[in-house]
């Protein structure tokens, strides 16, 4: 028996897949060949080592989030969704709609950023930086806000003010040459989820766009939130691949409705450097436009928050032109 064949059989033997006849001939070979005997001994030790190693595993929330992402991507494909899954189809469509707006927005990116820069220059947009001691680490946060921000009141009132239909919000940022966008869809679920009448469902679409890889959906989880909760939700995500892989922690908050305005705030935290950016502005529900509401530049990174409002069933608005 040649060593090459013997080693294949030895390897099969380790997996318990070796017929008796082959086993006997391998044993005869091993008695004469110290190299193959060494190989056999190493293979057994290797298998023990594999048995000792801890298997990587993902938790349940990861699977739920991945499932939602696939649902969105499938919806974008125009893939069929089963009848009876109205809610998940709706979520998919909303998140897909948010992505769609993103791409439209990116086309007009430069002019809108220029408009926001002008607003920043004339003081309509303000920026403050605070440093917080978080578990012994200094964490800096940048708050970019619009001057016309309503006073906060009860969160529930804001939800109720939304009516029965969907509001869509979008924010995007540019960092290290990669553009990242967040599309957020919020709508009351009372009619769809009878058991949780007060809950709202939130669909988020996070998309990265890089020059070399093009647009890519990195996350579209769906979360259920309750009115009155202090923080609606907090989501940690890993996005991108290769050297540009960044981790973001995103938080979205809906503020109050006052004088027909609704405050929208989006916080983006790249976990690698821990610097949080909070973008805050006010929008009028039902105005059916995509508006830039906050912009600033921090170091080499540009941050802007765009807000889109439209009703379910309508096509997303293409946005203002500066």
């Amino acid at each position: 028996m040649r060593c090459r064949n013997a080693r294949i059989l030895i390897s099969r033997g380790i997996d318990g897949k070796l017929p008796m006849a082959d086993n006997a001939s391998v044993q005869r070979h091993l008695e004469k060949c110290p190299d193959c005997a060494h190989y056999a001994e190493r293979c057994r030790a290797l298998q023990r080592l594999i048995g000792q190693s801890v298997a990587p595993a993902a938790d349940r929330s990861y699977w739920a989030e991945l499932s939602a992402r696939v649902a969105v991507a499938a919806a974008q494909d125009g893939a069929q969704t089963a009848p009876g899954l109205r809610l998940s189809r709706l979520i998919s469509c909303l998140a897909a709609g948010a992505c769609l707006i993103l791409f439209v927005m990116l086309l007009g990116e430069r002019s809108r950023v220029a408009q926001l820069r002008r607003e920043t220059a004339r003081g309509a947009l303000t920026s403050t930086t605070t440093t917080t001691d978080l578990y012994g680490f200094d964490t800096s946060a940048v708050l970019i806000s619009h001057a016309q921000q309503p006073e906060p009141t009860e969160q529930r009132a804001a939800f109720e003010a939304l009516g029965d239909y969907y509001q869509g919000e979008l924010g995007w940022m540019v960092q290290d040459g990669a553009q990242t966008a967040l599309g957020v869809s919020v709508y009351p679920s009372a009619r769809e989820v009878a058991a949780k009448e007060e809950a709202l469902l939130v669909g988020i679409a996070v998309v990265t766009v890089t020059a070399d890889r093009g647009p890519r959906l990195i996350s579209a989880p769906t979360l259920m939130i309750l009115p009155g909760a202090e923080a609606n939700f907090r989501l940690a995500e890993t996005g991108g691949t290769g050297p540009r892989r960044l981790r973001y922690q995103c938080a979205y908050e809906r503020g109050a409705a006052a004088d027909g305005l609704v405050e929208v705030a989006l916080e983006i935290t790249p976990l690698l450097d821990g610097k949080a950016v909070k973008l805050s502005g006010a929008v009028t529900p039902g105005d059916r436009t995509t508006r830039p509401v906050a912009y600033n530049r921090v170091g080499d990174a540009h941050y802007a928050l765009f807000v889109s409002t439209y009703e379910r069933g309508e096509p997303p608005p293409s946005g203002d032109q500066a």
Binding site: R7, I8, I10, S11, R12, I14, D15, Y39, E41, R42, C43, A45, L46, R48, L49, Q52
Partner: peptide
């Protein structure tokens, strides 16, 4: 599989010795 085992065993030699 056999060839992969040969390569892995070479790379992981220090661990295999201690496991042995």
């Amino acid at each position: 599989v056999a060839e992969a085992r040969r390569r892995l065993a070479r790379k992981l030699a220090p661990y295999l010795d201690s496991a042995g």
